[in-house]
C-alpha cells in the first residue's frame, strides 16, 4: 500500500487529504492516469513528490511510499 496526498484544489475535488491504495511497481505516470480517471481530476499541471522529493513521470512507486500531488504552488 502507498499513501497518496492531495492539496489545495485537488484535495477539495477528491474530498480527502489522504488516500491509501495499491500501487507497487507503478510509474508516476500510470498512477496519475489511474487517479485522474478515478476522481475525474486534471493532473496535467500537478507535480509529484515521492517521499517529499519531486519525482519524474517515469519514476517507479514502491510499497510504503508517500506520494503527493503538488498543484502549481502559490506561497509567499
Amino acid at each position: 500500500m502507498i499513501d497518496v496526498l492531495f492539496f489545495a484544489e485537488l484535495q477539495e475535488t477528491v474530498g480527502n487529504e489522504k488516500v491509501s491504495m495499491e500501487a507497487d511497481g507503478m510509474t508516476v505516470k500510470a498512477l496519475k492516469e489511474k487517479l485522474s480517471a478515478a476522481y475525474d481530476l486534471s493532473l496535467d499541471h500537478a507535480m509529484i513528490a515521492i517521499n517529499q522529493e519531486y519525482a519524474a513521470e517515469d519514476a517507479m512507486i514502491t510499497n510504503g511510499d508517500v506520494v503527493a500531488f503538488i498543484p502549481p504552488v502559490s506561497g509567499g
Binding site: F7, A8, D44, I70, P72, V73, S74, G75, G76
Partner: peptide
C-alpha cells in the same frame, strides 16, 4: 529566496473575495 519560494515550495493560497473563492496557482483554471 522569495522567487524560489514561488517556484518549488509546496504552499498554496486560497483567495476569499466578496463573490467567491479560488485556490491560486492552478494554471489550468
Amino acid at each position: 529566496a522569495i522567487e524560489r519560494i514561488k517556484e518549488i515550495v509546496p504552499i498554496w493560497k486560497k483567495e476569499h473575495w466578496e463573490d467567491g473563492t479560488k485556490w491560486i496557482g492552478d494554471q489550468k483554471e
